Simulated assay, not measured.
Amino acid sequence: MKAATVKQIKDELSNLSSSELVELVLRLSKFKKENKELLTYLLYEASNEDGYIASVKTEIEEQFKSVNTTNYYFIKKTARKILRITKTYIRYSKKKETEVALLIHFCLELKKVQPSIKHHVTLQNLFNRQINLIEKAIATLHEDLQYDYNLELEKLLK
């Protein structure tokens, strides 16, 4: 089965009644956890972005507390998993401010991990890639926000 284009789907959805749309959305939410998470964000959390960022930051902290620090292999695997989940939450929001705030928080938590990531090339590269992404995202923001986030980034890099 070949998937329809976004335009075709949009045209078809515009022809449906509201009850049919509700039925389709509920059916869609049953298939993947990501669909349900996105719907949850759009319905409940999109109106309160600060609360959303705070809850995701709390989740990131909890996940970093459970990192197995016996060797760098486990730290690396867990850090990548946490980053993948963080990127998913960023994708739900689509706001650069949210992206910058969550990536800075991820990097802060990664930097706190003991033993230090400075002694492992792969983890240091992961950290550096996120710093580059943060810098690119900051460049697209308003000047006031750029200044604030650049201060946070400087603190992170010290």
Rank of each mutant, 00 (worst) to 15 (best):
K95L: 10
L108K: 15
S93G: 08
K112Y: 04
Y89S: 05
Y89Q: 09
E99V: 01
R80H: 11
I131C: 03
D148C: 05
H142A: 13
N15V: 09
I60T: 04
K36D: 09
V22T: 09
D148P: 00
L39K: 11
L42E: 13
L21F: 06
V22L: 15
S18L: 15
K2P: 00
E49R: 13
V22N: 09
E97P: 09
N125G: 05
L24F: 01
D11Y: 08
L13W: 06
E20P: 01
R91H: 14
S47V: 02
K2L: 13
S18K: 15
S19K: 15
K7V: 02
K96Q: 14
Y92G: 04
R80M: 13
L157H: 10
V56K: 01
A4D: 13
I104W: 01
S93W: 09
S93E: 00
K81A: 09
T78I: 00
N15M: 14
I85F: 05
L108A: 02
F74I: 00
Y41N: 01
Y92E: 02
I134T: 06
S47L: 09
E61Y: 00
S55F: 05
K10P: 01
K118E: 12
A101H: 04
K30S: 15
S55Q: 14
L126E: 12
V6Q: 10
K76D: 06
Y41P: 01
K33Q: 11
T86S: 07
F64S: 06
F31P: 00
E154I: 03
D144Y: 13
T88E: 13
H120F: 13
S19C: 06
Y72T: 05
G51H: 05
H120E: 14
E37T: 09
L28E: 11
K76G: 04
L102H: 01
Q130P: 03
T98H: 01
I104T: 03
E97W: 02
R84T: 10
L24I: 15
A3D: 08
K30W: 03
H105G: 02
T88Y: 08
L141S: 07
T122M: 15
S66W: 02
K2C: 04
L141D: 03
E62D: 14
F31W: 12
I138D: 05
K32T: 13
I53N: 02
L13S: 04
I134N: 03
R91M: 09
E20K: 15
L102C: 03
E97M: 07
K95Y: 12
Y147E: 10
T88W: 02
S116M: 06
I117D: 05
I117R: 12
E97Q: 12
N15S: 11
Q124C: 05
L145D: 07
H120S: 08
K96C: 04
K96D: 15
L110G: 08
N125R: 12
K77V: 04
V56E: 00
H119C: 02
R27L: 10
M1G: 14
Y44K: 14
N35C: 06
L156R: 08
K33S: 11
K32L: 14
E154L: 11
L123R: 09
A4K: 14
